[in-house]
Design a protein around this nucleic acid. Structure first.
Lengths: 333, 333
DNA sequence: CCCGTATTTGCAAGCGCTTGCAACACTCTT
DNA sequence: AAGAGTGTTGCAAGCGCTTGCAAATACGGG
């Protein structure tokens, strides 16, 4: 026995002495209503506390204004700031975000997309995990837009947003070279998502071009604690690295803390570190980490403006630059 | 010319050779359908890729399954982890979260609630800001549930979830006493939300009971950078505090960094610090901050289980314990 | 084999909204 | 004064679903 105390257009119409259609048109931008009618409708609506029922509207309009954000580990700094940017942009475009958490099982991205279909979302934006091909197709076939952020794998009809990871990695390598580093390492998580792997490969191949070698370790999720473990593995090698490029900032933070507290290394004197994401903590003075900025606002812009296009040219791909932020974790600069 | 390529119950019915009602009932738990019919319906639905249209369903059911999360600064660690906990619980209760960001203007919480009404959300959970009384009433009158987390101010019919902030503050004070501290300070933001103020007052009054004084500074939002500023203000006082209770962990991190790097103080030898929220960073070894845990999972449980109650006893109030996590930023322990 | 009871099924109305269509009311022109 | 043109309005059908009701069917006991 829920509310049901919602005011309907009928009631507003009665009070204003007009037809239901008139009130409907009043709240439909661009519809033909005289000023006088509009005034009376607005007044009645105000008095009664009427709000257009978006659910019913979506039924006929065939457009719900709902956009699903599908994400896991959303308490991670980078994810959180991306979500923030996205919700803001979506709201400016008068769309609304539905948040679906996919922390749990493996098929839950598919599950999430089914939800998206059930709520007739206009679009889904996927920040984590990779949906099954069949379900993506179903989404796209039923007219849903789909945006994949840092997911890489191509999906017909979807918009792909990625960064120039390899290029960034290369710049990281050059920065280390300039700082006079000689033993290079790459600290990666073992989840192996395309963007993390691209950073690793970019870094390795940049080194290879100079005939140099890179020690690589992969461990755990992309989190602080993994960084600590990676430090143990990398900094105990016989020829201790003096330059570590971390697949992301969280790993870098863990690695730096371990390097300083357990191995008594000074940063950047004994060890140079570069990260990726430019999370807020990287700018904290304990870390002062040189890193690459994820252009969250640009990403959100690209995603939302593509969604806003009337009949989007099916799919596409955007590549964005990750800018290097110089801080104190690398000598020179 | 959006999709419209959605399969409707009619089509499934035709293919399965049954009536529309049969397919509707198949997807309505507890409705009366024979096994045989159900089987055929499911099969047809599967083949066609049918998903119940939740929008249409909500229209008649008068219950949408949508819960609005109204939040600002959602990229802040504590907020992000609360949102994560909430979305997870909501999904388990087969509800879905709509995220509304209220970073922008001041009336935007009201704006957000209007959205919630338009989408006929079953409930709104407010994590930031304080809606106008009139709009809260409208929500509640139209049968919407409302949960206020750490907002404190009473609203008829709403569920209030708060922590024992004063009690926690008192425990912080005692911890400092035990550590042998003598000059107490409280570092607060100047946003003055009830929970922050309760911590401040709790701390002061605990000190007062011992006939002791507390230096209080308030500055900026509850963020790292404010902590840096607060350090400048507090640690330059003639009788330098040797114990600072920070209104939240973000402030504490800023304050600790400034204390160490600018004032060359050792923690906890020269300065003891306690924070509040237990964000992930507090456990990082650079901070190793003694702090109070926000019981995010408990909070989410309370909120969601209250929402799940069929006809909730109008409103109420839950107070939860904030547990003290001992780490290295306080001597002894 | 028949009847009472229990289960299943289809019909049709209704949820709140949009929108094409036709009717209507104006204003201008000639 | 009639007709063309423009703008506004109401009617009614339809969006996809649920659900009360009554008809139909199945089941079990005598």
């Amino acid at each position: 026995m829920r509310g049901k105390i919602f005011i309907s257009a009928k009631e507003v119409a009665d009070r204003a002495g007009v037809s239901r259609s008139a009130v409907s048109r009043t709240f439909t931008p661009g519809a033909s209503v005289s000023d006088e009618t509009r005034r009376r409708v607005i007044e009645a609506a105000e008095a009664l506390g009427y709000h257009v029922n978006h659910l019913a509207r979506s039924l006929t309009r065939n457009e719900s204004g709902i956009v699903c954000l599908i994400v896991s580990e959303l308490d991670t700094p980078y994810r959180a700031s991306l979500i923030r940017a996205l919700t803001r942009r979506l709201q400016s475009a008068s769309k609304i975000a539905m948040l679906i958490n996919t922390d749990r099982s493996d098929d839950s991205v598919d599950q999430a997309l089914r939800q998206a279909i059930s709520y007739r979302a206009d679009a889904s934006i996927i920040l984590s995990g990779m949906p099954d091909k069949s379900i993506t197709e179903r989404c796209i076939n039923s007219g849903q837009r789909m945006v994949l952020i840092n997911r890489d794998e191509r999906r017909d009809g979807a918009l792909l947003i990625n960064l120039y990871d390899r290029e960034a990695a290369k710049r990281a390598f050059i920065a280390f070279l300039r700082a006079g580093c000689q033993n290079f390492a790459f600290a990666n998580s073992d989840v192996g998502t395309p963007s993390l792997m691209a950073r690793e490969e970019g870094f390795r191949s940049a080194a290879l071009e100079q005939g140099l070698d890179v020690k690589v370790e992969r461990f755990g999720p992309t989190r602080y604690q993994s960084g600590v473990v990676l430090a143990q593995r990398l900094l105990t090698r016989e020829k201790r690295p003096d330059a570590v490029f971390c697949a992301n900032d969280l790993l870098a933070c863990g690695l730096m803390d371990a390097a300083r507290n357990q191995f008594k290394l000074r940063i950047p004197e004994d060890l140079c570190v570069i990260g990726f994401d430019d999370i807020e903590q990287s700018s904290w003075s304990s870390y002062d980490l040189t890193t690459f900025t994820q252009p969250v606002d640009r990403i959100a812009d690209e995603a939302v403006s593509w969604l806003a296009q009337p009949m989007a040219t099916s799919g596409g791909s955007r590549k964005l630059e990750a800018e290097l932020v110089w801080r104190g974790s690398v000598r020179g600069g």
